[in-house]
């Protein structure tokens, strides 16, 4: 059942400082509204609980993608289209570009933003697993200043975030210089386009002398929020990827994730798939 749009407010402050000022003055009263690809869907379904929003779509300073020697800074309002078309990201952060390409259709990619994908805090979001693999950090801004948090520490529970009501996600920061890692991204969503993931697994590993020197494994749709599988990672560090090691990793992962049954899939399927994708990744590491 639709919502009545007449009972929702959307104001457009003329610049970013005004947005931050309003957020600070009436904390919790206003929430940011970017490309609308999640919020408008909730509105249509009659499930948009909050009523007052600030339009930040035009805050251009939050859309820029910039590179330094050590890191990439992606403005929170960079769209999936911006991300997937960026030359450096394509070269060095392929998983993120893959995630962007596989999120919705072109029209959604033109409006959906990386910051919005994070702030919507869906456990099924496509880009967060990639961000976790890349050890992303977030730059949060408020009228009082900015702070940086590790993205791995940002989501604290289902739809819960380490974000104050007066704060905005301003930028996503990706450390550069991780050449030579083997990477993997796979989203399982039954159809080939416009799917909501049943399981999404992103991973990267560095091998030395046939053993895992370092590894990142992150998953969507298997826990209340997108997660890093740190226990599984730890169990693999220093290991040679023989059949026993892969079986152990599967078991560790199965114990580490907490998938559920819902209208899109089953806990059992999600668990099997998460293990199978991990195995596919580890086998690809073992063969190179």
């Amino acid at each position: 059942m639709r919502s009545s749009v007449a009972s929702f407010d959307l104001r457009t402050p003329h610049d970013l400082p005004s947005v931050l000022e309003l957020l600070a003055r009436e904390p919790g009263e206003w929430r940011p509204f970017a490309g609308g690809t999640d919020l408008m869907v909730l509105l249509e379904a009659g499930k948009l609980a909050h009523r007052r929003y600030l339009n930040i779509w035009n805050c251009r300073e939050l859309r820029n993608i910039s590179a330094s020697d050590s890191e990439m800074k992606i403005g929170a309002l960079a769209t999936y289209t911006d991300v997937k078309g960026h030359a450096i990201l394509q070269r060095e952060f392929e998983l993120l570009c893959r995630a962007a390409e596989e999120t919705g259709g072109i029209a959604t990619q033109n409006r959906g933003t990386l910051g919005g994908n994070i702030a919507n805090a869906s456990p099924a979001a496509d880009s967060p697993p990639a961000l976790l693999v890349y050890d992303a950090e977030l730059e949060l801004i408020s009228a009082g200043g900015t702070r940086r948090v590790l993205y791995a520490d940002f989501h604290t529970g289902y739809k819960k975030m380490n974000l104050r009501p007066d704060e905005l996600i301003a930028r996503i920061i990706l450390p550069r210089g991780r050449g030579g890692w083997k990477t993997y991204y796979r989203k399982v969503g039954t159809r080939r386009a416009q799917a909501i993931s049943k399981v999404c697994l992103a991973a990267a590993a560095k091998t030395e002398n046939g053993a895992i020197a370092d590894i990142r494994i992150a998953l969507g749709s298997v826990a209340p929020c997108v997660m890093r599988a740190t226990k599984t990672e730890n169990s693999l560090r220093g290991k040679r990827l023989d059949a026993a090691a892969i079986d152990d990793a599967r078991a560790t992962l199965a114990a580490e994730i907490t998938p559920i049954d819902d209208m899109r899939s089953t806990a059992r399927y999600r668990s099997r798939i998460a293990q199978n994708l991990l195995q596919e990744f580890l086998q690809s590491c073992a063969t190179t």
Binding site: G36, T37, M40, V41, N55, G105, N110, R111
Partner: peptide, 29 residues
């Protein structure tokens, strides 16, 4: 569909394809 899934409401906005069901009118300024 009203949820950005079917694309029947596609329009171009500033040269980019968008689903007009997911654009609040205030953002068309």
């Amino acid at each position: 569909c009203g949820e950005g899934e079917c694309g029947a409401c596609s329009i171009e906005m500033d040269g980019r394809l968008v689903n007009s069901c997911l654009v609040p009118v205030a953002q068309a300024e």
